[in-house]
């Protein structure tokens, strides 16, 4: 049976993991490769790296990180941030990323979705959607860019449908309302989007514990859940989350040791 995926997400700046990752197991918790290896061993189903490197001059550090991760990590990983054209996509995929995630660039130029899907296959094109509830209009959400600062005027549901119809193989849906609060994902938005498209939806923004993930995967209809802080700060181990979800009857790939 196809299982629901648990996806830790890292913010990476100039090849280093940022935003206080604290791991007693690691000598260098800022090393994305060490972290990725640890998460693979702990049972992560996929990984997402969000590259927040501001300067294009520093992109080489990101390339080195992606290549080093691909050398040593044997689960799929997605790279997002700074991918603006098919050449950027090609570079990341050739370095060993399984998928690339595009957000602002897709909004500015929706043809990028179609072109990426045509050239590299839908399966590796993830469209990330950051959205907020529209006050006074229940059941409607607006797409934002730049970490939730810039409104686009786009309706999240309509944009999700367009992105999927242009060839996105997956949608990474983040609620800017719930993100960072650790009180649960925006399950109403997840459900609306998941029901409107046939491609898988990754829930993002608001995970405070395994119960929130269970809600996103059931009430929200998501196919995968993404989380950062609760894993990075060691609040929950992936194995704990998986065991909780399995107990709720949600199909989960069991955590197995990497070696006998």
């Amino acid at each position: 049976m196809l299982t629901r995926r648990i996806i830790p997400c890292f913010d990476v700046d100039r090849g280093r993991v940022v935003k206080g990752v604290s791991f007693v197991e690691l000598r260098d918790a800022g090393d994305p490769v060490e972290l990725a290896k640890l998460y693979e061993a702990e049972g992560a189903d996929e990984l997402v790296f969000l590259d927040i490197t501001a300067s294009a001059d520093d992109r080489a550090t990101t390339y080195d990180m992606v290549a080093a991760t691909a050398d040593q990590v044997f689960i799929p990983f997605t790279v997002g941030g700074g991918i603006r054209n098919p050449v950027d996509m090609k570079v990341m995929l050739e370095l060993g990323a399984e998928k690339v995630s595009i957000n602002t660039a897709a909004i500015q130029n929706p043809d990028l979705i179609s072109e990426g899907a045509y050239r590299f296959g839908s399966q590796c094109i993830v469209v990330a959607i950051d959205a907020r509830r529209i006050p006074g209009e229940p059941g409607r959400w607006e797409v934002f860019t730049h970490g939730g600062r810039n409104p686009t005027g786009l309706d999240a549901l309509e944009w999700a449908i367009e992105a999927a119809s242009r060839g996105a193989g997956e949608l990474l849906v983040t609620s800017m309302d719930t993100d960072g609060h650790q009180k649960g994902y925006d399950n109403a938005m997840l459900r609306a989007i998941s029901d409107a498209v046939t491609v898988p939806v990754i829930a993002s923004g608001g995970a405070g514990g395994p119960e929130h993930m269970a809600d996103a995967l059931t009430a929200g209809g998501a196919d995968a859940v993404l989380a950062a802080s609760i894993f990075h700060f060691g609040t929950y181990k992936i194995a704990e989350v998986k065991s909780y979800l399995a107990g709720k009857g949600i199909p989960i790939r069991p955590v197995e040791p990497l070696t006998d």
Partner: peptide, 28 residues
């Protein structure tokens, strides 16, 4: 039904074969 079929799923072996040695049937 989401398409693509994306994620971890089980494989049941239908017979013995050298490439499946040491991999239990039903592995993901």
């Amino acid at each position: 039904l989401k398409v693509p079929h994306m994620g971890w799923n089980t494989v049941e072996w239908l017979r013995e074969h050298p490439v499946t040695e040491g991999i239990p049937t039903g592995s993901y």
